[in-house]
Measured scan of single mutants.
Amino acid sequence: MQIFVKTLTGKTITLEVEPSDTIENVKAKIQDKEGIPPDQQRLIFAGKQLEDGRTLSDYNIQKESTSHLVLR
């Protein structure tokens, strides 16, 4: 499924993911596309910070959901 990640600069990154993917996996995909190390990434969805060990389905992130990327 596709999800979108919006950066603070207003850029939207499109990612191909599975509901069973962990947040860690998603951060690795963002690193592949954008070159941002996962330890600098914070992903926010529905006002919550997403934890590495959880999956997209844990957070009820469905296709075409948009989460926000904040850099630390």
Rank of each mutant, 00 (worst) to 15 (best):
L50K: 00
N60A: 08
Q31E: 09
V17A: 05
T9Y: 14
I36Q: 02
S20K: 08
D39W: 13
E18M: 14
G47T: 04
R42S: 10
K63I: 08
L8T: 12
P38A: 15
N60E: 07
L56W: 03
I30C: 01
D21H: 05
D52E: 08
T22H: 04
E34H: 07
S65D: 09
T7C: 09
E34W: 15
L56E: 00
P37C: 07
L15P: 00
V5K: 00
K27E: 01
P38H: 10
A28M: 14
N60S: 08
H68A: 08
M1C: 05
D32K: 13
L69S: 02
V70Q: 10
D58T: 04
Q31A: 14
T14V: 14
F45R: 03
N25K: 14
V26Q: 00
S20D: 11
Q49F: 13
G10N: 06
E64T: 10
T9G: 12
E24T: 09
T14N: 06
T14A: 09
F4C: 08
G10H: 05
G35W: 03
Q31G: 07
L69K: 01
I3G: 01
R42E: 11
I30P: 00
S20R: 08
V17F: 03
Y59Q: 03
G10P: 02
E34V: 15
H68V: 14
T66E: 10
K11M: 09
S57F: 09
K48Q: 14
K27T: 01
D21P: 00
I44A: 05
P37T: 06
G35K: 06
T66F: 10
A28I: 13
L69C: 02
K33D: 03
D21T: 10
I44R: 05
T22S: 08
S57N: 09
T9P: 04
T14P: 06
I61T: 02
S20G: 11
L43C: 02
Q2T: 14
E24P: 02
E16W: 14
I44H: 08
D32R: 13
T9R: 11
L56K: 00
G10K: 04
G10L: 03
A28K: 15
G53P: 06
L8K: 10
S57T: 08
E18T: 14
L69P: 02
Q41K: 01
T12G: 03
K27G: 01
A28Q: 13
R42I: 15
F45Y: 13
Q2I: 15
G10D: 04
I44M: 13
Q62P: 10
Y59V: 03
Y59C: 03
K63W: 11
S65C: 08
T55K: 10
L43K: 00
Y59R: 01
P19D: 06
L71H: 06
E34M: 15
I23F: 02
Y59P: 01
R42W: 10
T12F: 11
V5M: 03
P19W: 08
K29L: 10
G53Y: 10
D32N: 10
D52Y: 05
Y59T: 02
D21G: 03
K29I: 06
E51V: 09
D58I: 03
I13Y: 05
P19Q: 07
Q62C: 11
E16V: 12
T14Y: 08
D39V: 09
T55I: 06
R42M: 15
G35M: 04
V26N: 00
I23A: 02
S20F: 11
G53S: 11
T9N: 13
R42P: 01
Q62E: 11
K48A: 09
T66Q: 10
S57K: 12
P37M: 06
L71A: 06
M1G: 03
K11V: 08
L8N: 11
L69R: 02
N25Q: 14
E51W: 05
G53E: 09
I30S: 00
P19H: 06
A46Q: 15
T66L: 10
I44S: 11
Q49I: 15
N25Y: 12
G10A: 03
V17M: 04
V5H: 01
P38R: 13
L69I: 13
Y59K: 01
I23N: 00
D21N: 06
E64W: 14
F45H: 10
T9A: 12
L56S: 00
P37E: 06
K6V: 14
S65W: 08
I61K: 01
L15D: 00
Q31T: 09
E51K: 08
I44C: 15
S65H: 08
K6C: 13
D32M: 14
K27I: 03
K11N: 07
A46L: 13
T55W: 03
K6G: 04
P19I: 08
Q49S: 09
H68Q: 10
E16C: 13
D58M: 05
Q2R: 14
T22K: 08
K27W: 03
L15C: 02
A28L: 15
I3N: 00
G47M: 04
L71W: 06
G53H: 14
S20P: 02
S67A: 15
S65G: 10
D52V: 05
Y59A: 02
G10S: 04
R54S: 07
Q41S: 04
L8M: 13
F4Y: 13
L69F: 05
D21A: 07
V17E: 00
